[in-house]
Design a protein around this nucleic acid. Sequence first.
DNA 1: TTTATTTGACCGCT
DNA 2: AGCGGTCAAATAAA
Length: 299
Amino acid sequence: MDNSSRRKAIEELVRGHDRAKQLRSIVNGICSDDGSATPFAEQLMKEVLMSFTNSLLFLNNTITSESPDVQLSDSPKSEDSQESNCKSSTVKERRGCYKRRRTEQTWEKESEVPIDDGHQWRKYGQKEILNAKFPRNYYRCTHKFDQGCQATKQVQKVQEDPILFKTTYYGIHTCKNLSNPEIILDPISPSTSSMFLSFDNSFPTPLNQECPFLSSSFPSSAVKRECKEEIPPSTSSNDYLISSELTFDSSPKHHVTLSSTLDSEYKSVDLSDVLYDHAHLDDVLNPSLNFDNFSCFDV
DNA sequence: TTTATTTGACCGCT
DNA sequence: AGCGGTCAAATAAA
């Protein structure tokens, strides 16, 4: 992820944090008005705020622990082979010459239908996986070349439950071609999908046992050729929505994991500037983004 | 003609 | 050595 993408991620987290605080105020107001105690809602709000804070801390830790002047060309050949070795060679010699994906942010989502996440994907491969019944499909962002978006995803049927598709996202979209930038979450069928947001063992947990989670959005209305093979025609569009109204659904089938180690391609951002001086961010960010629907899933 | 998908080949990593 | 991820030529679809 480049520096601007990282900064945008931080800005979005800050905004989410701010919205969560506002929501907490509203929830508290409701509680005092009718006298009905909602400790669950309050607890959830605390956790949401904590998660935003943890995420921001994590991002800040990652950023500040990295040298902004790291030259990626110093890294092993797999990182720059495509740039240096392959450019000068013939087409045939370039065959199979690629950058191997590094460990980076991943999201996993399981759903009864392959999800439409609002991004445009192009299939670039399919592999039979050892000990797996079903092949794994590989997709990259359509804007990989025109915008340098490095996001990829893998889609595979769940062996134990072939109804389910497991989608794993790698990297974050840096493209600006989200077909539906609104964050819409499924009000209808929370049990039809689950997202997993977790951290692998190598993850440098910034705080205590509180495992930070990140929010994720899956806008609903991308209708692209490269998405159509994932969407059975009989399926209602509601099946692709995830509800903000069910944001706090504690159903075990409706959760998010993020396994992640962040890449190291961006430069330092002073998070304190973002955290304590972010009132102006509303002016900077795209006003079309509606963070009122922003939501998180606790695990 | 352009754009997307399929699929065998190739390479990095373990 | 073998698996998994990616490339790119061939093919299909719009």
